[in-house]
Design a protein around this nucleic acid. Sequence first.
DNA 1: TATGAATGAGAATTCATTCAT
DNA 2: GATGAATGAATTCTCATTCAT
Lengths: 228, 228, 228, 228
Amino acid sequence: MKKFAAISRFPRPSPAAKAKVRLEPVRDAERTQQAILAAAEEEFADKGLAGARVDAIAEQSGANKRMLYYYFGSKEQLYLAVLERAYGAMRQAERELNLLDLEPLDAIRRLVEFKFDYYREYPRLIRLLAGENMLDASFLKASNQLREMHSSLGEILESVLAAGEKQNVVKPGIDPVHLYISITALSYFYFANRATLSVAFSRDLTRADEINERRTHAVQVMLDYVRV
Amino acid sequence: MKKFAAISRFPRPSPAAKAKVRLEPVRDAERTQQAILAAAEEEFADKGLAGARVDAIAEQSGANKRMLYYYFGSKEQLYLAVLERAYGAMRQAERELNLLDLEPLDAIRRLVEFKFDYYREYPRLIRLLAGENMLDASFLKASNQLREMHSSLGEILESVLAAGEKQNVVKPGIDPVHLYISITALSYFYFANRATLSVAFSRDLTRADEINERRTHAVQVMLDYVRV
Amino acid sequence: MKKFAAISRFPRPSPAAKAKVRLEPVRDAERTQQAILAAAEEEFADKGLAGARVDAIAEQSGANKRMLYYYFGSKEQLYLAVLERAYGAMRQAERELNLLDLEPLDAIRRLVEFKFDYYREYPRLIRLLAGENMLDASFLKASNQLREMHSSLGEILESVLAAGEKQNVVKPGIDPVHLYISITALSYFYFANRATLSVAFSRDLTRADEINERRTHAVQVMLDYVRV
Amino acid sequence: MKKFAAISRFPRPSPAAKAKVRLEPVRDAERTQQAILAAAEEEFADKGLAGARVDAIAEQSGANKRMLYYYFGSKEQLYLAVLERAYGAMRQAERELNLLDLEPLDAIRRLVEFKFDYYREYPRLIRLLAGENMLDASFLKASNQLREMHSSLGEILESVLAAGEKQNVVKPGIDPVHLYISITALSYFYFANRATLSVAFSRDLTRADEINERRTHAVQVMLDYVRV
DNA sequence: TATGAATGAGAATTCATTCAT
DNA sequence: GATGAATGAATTCTCATTCAT
């Protein structure tokens, strides 16, 4: 008897699928696709594109392997679908931050915390991005959908910094792109490399108190940098 | 039991291997092993453990595929040997920094610059580490050699910070481990994710002037953070 | 849906397979498995576990090599399946002998003849057992299925001997296990070692008249032993 | 520092080799060959021709792998050499039995006991023979040396039986070849199949008391058969 | 006579993908 | 839409044997 995998809360299944009554898992296109995507996300995040196994995804999703090709065409296209969904969800969340409504320093703090919290709650994204970087972002580059998803944060941060300068609370000359990269780096690197770092420092960096301490640290570093 | 001669600052493939020139069949165990290691480092850095191809390593190294098993036992053991060499070389280089001989703020700057320069010159290390993190550092954890290679930088940074506090040039209460992680993050993330970042910001982050700007930025961020 | 009829007394390769005729690609799991088992039995009996070639089994069975792993997992597990089938069939045949319905001496004679005839008709079993003995019965020992297939003949022979003693036609004190071993030995050794024996005695022991003579001899030896 | 493997007591090294003072194991042709033969005998007995590993033999013998080819030419020729040595030693031992000097029934008993004891003390021979039988005695057949080593026991047993008949202690009409085969079978099968038999009867047939009981049983069976 | 490095032909196993129903 | 069987091209690994010293 087949079971569908739990579906990640981040890239949510469409409301339609969600509203469906859970009956026998037969002949429900939307639901099958979501189950495959969820299983694929896990597998690709865990093993990378090369290490992922189509068989594992099929089994984990509860769908027949043939369905995977039916809906997505190939392993690579499935990988792309996963990437688009996860990456798109993050970009969407960023867009909903409304940083321009905040005081400049609050906006910086908000962004740092958002990045940190997002990665903490959705570590698969980090692994997907790490894998994609090992592929030189070749799928990101090839994706029409994702090419159009430029981070708008560059421009938004530019406005934030400009406002801060005008209010004399932010030092002048900060490159918004490098600022964004650093904000992301402080969280991403921590979550991406917890494994090797824990070994290197003989200190369990996966504990909740360590994580909270890191969050405070990241905010502090970035605020110290932007403040006048 | 084999021992390697002193390892050059970055283990790099010999020019011969790089040009895919077949080694003349000199029966030189050391040379063959080095050629295999060099080729393997490149392949594993490029493709990760799962994506790497033993055949490709053999061909690239100019050695017979059988030699790879003769000397290293299996693909995974070869991967471990590569990791140990690359990781060990970095730790060794860190040890030679002699940060304690510098003024506290100079030491911080020196460390940021060192990390940045090391990754810039040896990007394969980043890719190896990224791959290893996707494996949850399972090989790092399993390696006796590497387990003993705890970064000594935790303690060294602690001394640097203490000295800085005493001289009243460093703010109190900084956690040396998180400081080290942030220093590393600012460089690592940049080099590791240049590919996706360049897409996201439509800006070629691989150009030399961008890289230099990044270096300056990283130093600034960390100094702003530690300064009193 | 195709199904094979009850399996003939000795699992033997279908004539089709024997003639190396490619099965038409009917998608019939049961049939494919049986074809693989039959081909594997022949190969393992011929060459032993180490000498058998997975490629040869695949070709002989008419199935794709991949199917072999699909259904049996590995060469060793396939070997085990073959062993279980062949060994189980013999134990089953033994169980159907109903020795207790016969007069004691008739029962002994019946058992000797049965063993002899079984090995004569199914020489692959001898070769499988010889191979398995060279592996110290490691697969027999590891098989849950086979562990439970203790020969019941120990107890049955015990009853036969007891009845014979009571009737004063069998001498007392005979160990049923050693009796069984000897009965088996006289047939097994002959068929297993015909090759070397024929050389040693410059006498073709594979001829039908030699075989019949041997059968008579074996019966005589065992009856002379048990008779009072 | 290399060590030579212990050399089996059955096929003994030549006296010359034996008299050598044990110095460093360099450049002693005879000794190297004996070490290789001893290691090969163990490996071939354990694994069969197909399962045996040339590397294992070389390592176990303490000799360089190249030496193995230097002295024996190939894996198969080495196997043959092992077979010839082991088989020849048994035939030689048989020849030294001098059965004709004994009373007929004593001669039979002597032969049964000899076979039993020889296999007990030299179980590798059983495994070598079992392996060779799986190869259809192809090496025995091909060996000039072994072809000439017909068992003389056929003729000797014929004389023994004739004498027994004349003395009226042996029943007439016994085929000496089948008698010899049965005598061998009762011991060989027991030692060859102890592994599977122990499993089948849940009884440890490798214990010393079991073995002694078996010896008595074998003598009894054969004497009951030949006696008038 | 001895040694360790090297080789190429296989052998087992894996994997993404397609077919027949 | 869905399923399980089937496929062939890789892919890792093994092995007997030979070469250079």
